[in-house]
Every structure is written in structure tokens, then in C-alpha cells.
Amino acid sequence: MKELDPNEIYRWLIFLPSLLILPALVLGLLRKTKARLQNRIGAPLFQLLFDLKKLSGKGETLSDAISWIFRSTAALNLSMLLLLSLVCPWLVFKPALGTSDLFYVMYVFAAIRFFTLLAALDSASPFAAFGASREATLSILVEPALMLSFAALAVNAKSSELSRVFEFAANSGVEASAIWAFAGMGILLSSLVELSRMPIDDPTTHLELTMVHEAMILEASGRTLALLEYGQALRMTILFGLVTQCFMHVFPAVIALSLGLKVLLSFLGILFIAISLGIFEVLSVKLRWRRNPDFIAYALTMGLLASLIAVGKGLLS
């Protein structure tokens, strides 16, 4: 057996607990911010963990119409998300695990969405099918924006390998910072669509008819629901972590960051995004469905700008 580096053990020791605590904290902070701004006390910060405990003790009610697709989707999605959490560079101190490709990561995200859609259709509930159709529309619209943002990062690093792209030494100068900033904005705006958060969809309305993600998981209960809820929180944390990493790469043009500061920043950045999203969700209203492409257009603009600068940088150097 290969000798383990003590540094690597520390990384695992911080990484594994944060895999459980960080999603709960992100969702809790978001909900707490919203509650406090609406003059409510709000649920405790770690409500997600209590919910998971409660749900996993409950029995499951399953429709007669479902097949193995619905039963296996929650577990399948969660395992794909755990895989992503290992290969995606969403935290600075994440243990190094071989190599992975940007586009591989993007399409694992797409596969998660695909199986959620399939499970929603499989549950034979009309509301879930509505949600699935909306999610499919949104995913078509948002894919170019995500793709362009990631492609700009890949061109900037001259490699699509994630560990090379997110290397801190690899970038310098104003153009690289601009690419990181625009790509970060693009990924942030697309992740709001991807997670069906506020300007696209209100996850706290009581009318499932109008919702996207919540409509799709209507039929889930018990352990399946627990897995899906935790999966959604983990997906949110990973996406916010990616955005945080993008914005952290803007800094090296101004000041050099030490490793300890980077670790601290990658935590604080995720929590900061959660809190500001909470504030934004209180202040803004849900867009009318037909206005959604207008919002997604801004994500695409950020992606276009990032890739334009990346191409210009490649032409000049």
C-alpha cells in the first residue's frame, strides 16, 4: 500500500465533515437570512440535518405506476453528486484525486438533471411532468452559457483538465482576471437557473403547479426524499464552491494569497454567496415564465464576454 502523506490525511479530515455540514449550513443560512429579513425567527441553521433524520425514519409511500427508474434515481443522483464533489475543484483543500475533465464534470451535472427528469416522468404525476418539462426547457437555455464560461476557462489555461484549469499559478495579468470574473458571473447566474432559485423559480411557494424542482420531487417520500433533499443541497454547495473558486482567481492579479487564506476564503465565499442569495430572494420577485430567457441571456452574455477575452488573449500572446 502506498504511504499516505500526512498533508493528504489532514485534507481528508477537513473535507469529509464539510461534505455533510457545508450543504446544511448553506441551505440553513439562506433560509435564515430570508426569515430574518421577513421578521420571522426561522428554522435552526442545521434544519436540513434534522429533516434528514426525520425523513429517514419514515416509511415510504410509492405509487403503483412507478418502475425501477423512480426507485433508483435518488441513490443514483446522490452517488453522482458525491463523485462530483470528489473531482470538482470546489474547495481549495479538496484531496487530489487523479485527473478529470471540465466537460466530464459538466455532463455529470447534466446526467443528474436527466435522471431527475426521467424519475419525474416515471412517477406518472401530472404536476411532476409539468416540472420536468420546465426543467428541460431551462436546461436547454442555460447550457450554452455554462459551456461558454467553462470553455473560456479552458482556453485561458490551455487545457481542459480541471486540476490545471484551477491552478493558481496558471494565471496572471488583467485579461486572466477578467476571464475569471466574467466566467464566475456566468456560472453564478446559470447556477441560479440550474438550482431553480429565485428569479427563475420560487422554491417556497405553496403552489406546485408553478414550480420547477419541487414539482419534480412531489411523489418522493421517506428515504428517497431525504436523499433528494441532501442531493439538492450538495449540488448547490458544489456550484457555489465553483463560483467562489472562480472569483478567488481574480485576486492574484492584485494580491498574492497564502494557503490558509485560500482555505478560509473558499469557505467564506460559499457562505457569502448563500447569504447574498437570501437577501436577493427577499428583494426580487419571480420572473414571469416567458421572461426567463431574458434573465438567462445575461448569463450567456457573461459567457460570451469571457470567451471573447480568452480568444483575444490567445491571439495576442
Binding site: A297, Y298, L300, L304
Partner: peptide, 14 residues
């Protein structure tokens, strides 16, 4: 449409 006009402007910047 305005979103497409915005994308046109980005390309014109290039």
C-alpha cells in the same frame, strides 16, 4: 429581441 441585441453587441465588441 433585447437579449439577442445584447449578444450582438458582445460580438460587435469583438
Amino acid at each position: 429581441a433585447p437579449p439577442l441585441a445584447m449578444h450582438c453587441c458582445v460580438l460587435l465588441m469583438g
